[in-house]
């Protein structure tokens, strides 16, 4: 494989002289999605900011990123020029697909951006607060239909966590999974379901237009652009962020890892990256190194627990 040959060549080159690394970034998704966009934005900014001379993006789609992750973990060990984009969705997909490869098989570097999950209803709905919605669920969980993204994904997990936090049996939630591309949004706007759950960015334009009301957001702090309360301040112990990250190959030496970390740190603090985040409407939730690893470990544990509770993981 070209990349392996190149990688080897550059490993030799960088051992003798310290000059801008050439990276290959794997987007474990098809062109057009969020991970692909992240990888391609990284590509542009890394080259423009002089962090790397040449960056290639490689798409390996499949199964919530786990196909790409497995290929990445198997083929890149010790090669510091290889990076992979990932996200919270991967945490869930690894569990629900019973993937033999997990995030422990790569070297997580940093969380780059993230988004709150928002719970919303159409403007015409009688439900005014998140408490109204939870009361309705307590009375008859089946009567509250939720439209959201794929089964076992971040939206589903958030509803499960909310139910659990409110003392409702998470297996009783009536979660209706819609395929991506905003089908769920159409179902909410068309009054087909009781409530909807999705990335806050998808709802905000509808809120501005007055066709939808956000009841709560899932992060620990309020989200810019909406005055909706967090689930935590409404009394439910739920904190979810749908983040995207960058990870490096497994089996790196401490020096190699530090070098990648330094490059990513330069990137995350560069003007080019900040302006790219702004154009794409991505929030800066940068968290790197040991802090990120600790946070990741906590989330994997919580996600495993809730997916078992919902019944998606045995």
């Amino acid at each position: 494989m070209k990349h392996a040959i190149l990688g080897a060549a550059f490993a030799v080159a960088t051992a003798t002289a310290a000059f801008a690394e050439n990276y290959v970034i794997m987007a474990p998704a098809a062109p057009g999605g969020g991970w692909d966009a992240t990888a391609r934005t990284l590509q542009e900014v890394m080259v423009a900011e002089g962090i790397s001379g040449n960056v290639q993006v490689q798409n390996v789609p499949g199964a919530g990123g786990t196909v790409g992750l497995a290929q990445f973990a198997a083929s890149t060990s010790g090669d510091a020029t290889q990076l992979i984009v990932g996200g919270y969705v991967m945490v869930g997909a690894i569990l629900t697909n019973a993937s033999p490869v997990s995030l422990a098989d790569v070297t997580p570097i940093a969380r780059l951006t993230g988004e709150a999950v928002a719970i919303a209803v159409p403007t015409a709905s009688e439900l005014q607060t998140i408490n109204d919605l939870v009361e309705m669920m307590k009375a008859d969980p089946g009567a509250v239909s939720w439209a959201g993204g794929s089964a076992g994904g971040v939206d589903h997990i958030t509803v499960g966590l909310l139910a659990k936090a409110a003392g409702i049996d998470p297996t009783k939630i009536n979660y209706v999974a819609f395929s991506g591309g905003g089908e769920a949004l159409a179902a909410i706007l068309g009054n087909q379901v009781t409530a909807g759950i999705s990335g806050v960015g998808e709802f905000l334009p509808q809120v501005e237009a007055g066709s939808m009301r956000i009841l709560a957001v899932s992060t620990d702090t309020r989200w810019p652009g909406t005055d909706a309360p967090t689930l935590m301040e409404s009394g439910y112990d739920v904190n979810v962020q749908n983040w995207r990250m960058i990870a490096a190959a497994p089996g790196l030496s401490d020096e190699q890892k530090a070098a990648v970390l330094a490059d990513i740190d330069t990137l995350a603090k560069s003007a080019g990256w900040k302006s790219a985040l702004e154009t794409k409407n991505w929030a800066d939730t940068y968290l790197a190194g040991a802090d990120f690893e600790a946070q990741l470990a906590k989330e994997i544990e919580a996600t495993t627990a809730i997916l078992k509770d919902i019944g998606l993981v045995q």
């Binding site: 499949g62 199964a63 697909n97 794929s150 089964a151």
Partner: peptide, 20 residues
């Protein structure tokens, strides 16, 4: 592939590339 509504894998025989 994966059933869209429940996340259940069908007819995939453990091959991850078939899950989609």
């Amino acid at each position: 592939g994966i059933d869209g509504l429940t996340g259940q894998a069908r007819m995939s025989f453990g091959v991850p590339q078939l899950l989609d």
